[in-house]
């Protein structure tokens, strides 16, 4: 039997199985059933994590060659390009929505707030990992300044980059928002954030996969339900490709 024939017969044998799987995969009832796992995974992980259990931190010698840029590597939005050209001196972060004091913070103001530094592992949904040293301001510190209302259950992060299916955004719940390691980072490995990694300001939400860590963040909106924002999935990739909203796994 030649290799080609062998491969061919394997392909035919799996063909029957696969067309069945592809038909199932296109069935909405089946897709909804599969998605039950996300609810279970989140419940199980939250149960064993507790509120403040920290993601592992590493020593400086564990830092790798790079933290590869993925998704948007360089935004082409006109407004962003204008900001980048002036070194982001006019960049602001607005926090509004269900808060007592909606506020627009200047980038310089954020950089002069109490610093938090952590060396953590960035895990991409694709399977790769990179270790880097992130510096920024604890998100809870910002949330306390604007006094988030009790009715706010989620934060929606509005970003300055637009991909094929629309503007990037992400959302997390208040438990992750107030986690001790969750921060708005402005430096990576002791340098100001490079554009590929989300300059000038990005989210770090360490117990989640990379796509939750919104880059180029312009506005944080406290909401009662993330499902009312954009496409309803709670994030760009959730809407565009069907990724899980809960990205702890």
């Amino acid at each position: 039997m030649t290799r080609r024939a062998l491969v061919g017969s394997l392909a035919v044998a799996s063909g029957g199985l696969l067309s069945g799987c592809d038909a199932l995969n296109a069935n909405q009832g089946w897709r909804d059933t599969l998605r039950l796992a996300e609810t279970g995974n989140m419940a199980l992980q939250r149960a064993i994590q507790g509120r403040d259990r920290l993601a592992r931190e590493y020593s400086p010698r564990d830092i790798g060659r790079s933290v590869p840029a993925n998704g948007t590597r360089a935004p082409t939005d006109a407004d962003y390009l204008k900001q980048a050209a002036t070194g982001f001196t006019d960049w602001t972060l607005t926090i509004d929505g269900l808060v007592e004091k909606p506020t627009r913070f200047a980038l310089g103001q954020i950089r002069s707030m109490p610093k938090q530094t952590q060396i953590t592992r960035h895990d991409c949904v694709e399977g790769w990992s990179a270790i880097g040293k992130w510096t920024g301001v604890n998100l809870a510190h910002l949330l306390d300044k604007v006094q988030v209302k009790d009715s706010a259950r989620y934060l929606v992060f509005h970003c300055a980059d637009t991909l094929r299916a629309g503007p990037y955004y992400e959302s997390i719940d208040m438990e992750d928002a107030r986690h001790p390691q969750t921060m708005m980072a402005w430096a990576l490995n002791d340098e100001l954030l490079p554009i590929g990694n989300g300059a000038p300001l990005r989210l770090r939400v360490e117990r989640h996969l990379g796509y939750k860590h919104a880059k180029y963040v312009r506005r944080i909106e406290a909401v009662a339900d993330y499902r009312l924002a954009y496409g309803g999935g709670g994030g760009y990739w959730e809407d565009a490709a069907g990724y899980e909203w809960y990205a702890g796994i």
């Binding site: 995974n41 992980q45 064993i48 994590q49 507790g50 259990r53 920290l54 993601a55 592992r56 592992r121 895990d123 399977g127 360490e206 117990r207 989640h208 996969l209 990205a247 702890g248 796994i249």
Partner: peptide, 11 residues
């Protein structure tokens, strides 16, 4: 071990 959420809970 590959899940960042589980990794935070159980090292």
């Amino acid at each position: 071990a590959m899940s960042p959420g589980t990794d935070a809970a159980l090292h």
